[in-house]
């Protein structure tokens, strides 16, 4: 196997001196498709922030064994000001910023790229609208376009399916499948059905992290992992993740 893109070793992290994650280890390899599940407040978002380098761990380290990968990020939508006066196109273009070019004005090809993504994510006609006029699902798609515009090697998605409407859900998943051909994906999701049909491996995060090297989990294993997930909300138990017991 090739070397990992990112290697998280013995990381303990949290806020104001209180740890949320304890002694977490995780390697992410090129073209991985990792589903991250766990209860609310279990530390999924915290793990993604450590991975992205925007939260410094108390101890342990995050290393990039190869060249530092370009990482795309779709934050949890509830953490972002939906009423900020900025247009869809400008939001998407902000994904083009890099450490060396953030102060430069944008090139024509960047704008063409943004236009292309606006079409791909079904936002045609909304490019020059302020994000405040978008629905939750449309806003999330704009943030997805922002995350992938710079062709990352690793894509971190924090609950990208909270608001996405039925009509786009299928398109979102086929888009992710297509993206996975060129980039690793770290997908946090509440929706265990999503996880089942898409991901290759699963991580359970609830203070600690349990890595599961396949996309099939039994309820017993979840119990052993101490990874309770709310299944009631999802109707019939998705077959591919949770094997029916009995």
């Amino acid at each position: 196997m090739s070397q990992p893109l990112v290697s998280i070793k013995k990381v303990t992290a949290g806020y104001n001196g209180t740890p949320v994650l304890k002694d977490v280890n995780l390697d992410i390899f090129p073209k991985d498709f990792l589903g991250v599940i766990g209860p609310n407040g279990g530390g999924k978002t915290t793990l993604s922030k450590v991975l992205l380098g925007i939260l410094k761990p108390f101890s342990g380290e995050v290393t990039f064994p190869g060249e530092r990968p370009n990482i795309g990020y779709l934050p949890q939508i509830s953490h972002i000001d939906h009423s900020f006066p900025v247009t869809v196109k400008d939001v998407i273009l902000s994904g083009m910023a890099t450490p060396r070019t953030w102060w430069k004005s944008l090139a024509k090809e960047h704008k063409a790229k943004a236009d292309n993504l606006i079409r791909k994510t079904g936002l045609s006609g909304l490019a020059n609208k302020p994000v405040g006029e978008l629905s939750g699902g449309q806003f999330q798609r704009a943030l997805l376009a922002r995350a992938i515009i710079n062709d990352p090697q690793l894509l971190v998605l924090d609950e990208p399916d909270t608001f996405v409407d039925r009509s786009f859900e299928g398109e979102l998943y086929s888009l992710l499948e297509q993206l996975n051909k060129t980039m690793a994906i770290f997908l946090i999701s509440h929706d265990i059905g999503t996880i089942s049909s898409m991901v290759k491996t699963i991580a359970c995060v609830n203070g600690s992290l349990h890595y599961h090297p396949s996309n099939v989990l039994s309820a017993e294993v979840l119990k052993v992992y101490n990874c309770p997930i709310d299944l009631i909300a999802h109707g019939p138990v998705p077959h591919r993740v949770l094997k029916n017991h009995g």
Binding site: K49, L52, G53, I54, I71, Y73, P75, H79, I80, D81, F84, V86, D90, V91, S94, G95, A97, T98, P99, R100, W102, W103, S105, L106, R146, N150
Partner: peptide, 20 residues
């Protein structure tokens, strides 16, 4: 700095991931 001002005001964490 019109772009960086808007980017860091709108979503500072994302801006940080882009190296601003």
């Amino acid at each position: 700095f019109s772009r960086p001002i808007v980017y860091t005001a709108f979503d500072p964490e994302f801006a940080r991931t882009r190296g601003l």
